[in-house]
Each structure stands twice: as structure tokens, then as C-alpha cells.
Amino acid sequence: MMKELHLRYAGPVVPITGILEEYCKTEATTLRDLLAELDGKYGGFDEIFVNRKTRQLNFNAMIYYGEPGKVPVAVIDLDQPVEDHAKITFW
């Protein structure tokens, strides 16, 4: 199912994306899928967030995930589902 997401880029991610935020349509079901998709658009994106050895979120990166009407929370698990209209900050 196609979802519309509000993506925000902060700190060291900005030089890679060249923008501070964007709205995007995606069929990604998890954050891991979304990161792979964004890596296709912004080379090196996946490497910032996904540890090559463990395939888990890097210790020195952070993602905030907020569903509509809810307080954003720090992501621990990259296999967390992505919901329509979520607001996600990559840091």
C-alpha cells in the first residue's frame, strides 16, 4: 500500500540530502525498507544508519518516528513498521 511520509533531515544527514525536509510516497513497510529506498536516492544514506556487521541501527545515528497525533519516539528497531502520514526525523 502506498504511504505518504513527511521526512526531516538533520545534522550530518543534510549534506547528503541537500534538503532539510520533504514529503515522499513509498511502498516501504518498515524503516529498514525505507532506508534502502532513500539510499537509492541519496547515496550513503543507508551506511549512516545501518551497521554493516549487525544490520541494526548504528550507535552514532538516530531516527525519530512520529505517527500522526503522537509524540515522536526514538527508534531502536529498524524493522518497525512505517505507517501512512508518519513524520520521521533522521539525525
Binding site: 526531516r8 545534522g11 550530518p12 532539510l20 549512516i48 552514532n60 545515528a61 515522536p72 526525523t89 539525525w91
Partner: peptide, 23 residues
Amino acid sequence: SRDMWTPVWSVYGAPVLVRLFAE
């Protein structure tokens, strides 16, 4: 480094926190 600040501090310094703080 296990520090999430390492890449951030070294380029931006602390005001990079502002947008995150708003969130």
C-alpha cells in the same frame, strides 16, 4: 565511535540540536 554526537558535533556544534529539540 558509539557516540551519536561524534559526526554531528564535529561539523555543526550544539545548535544542531534545535530542530531535534522542537521535535
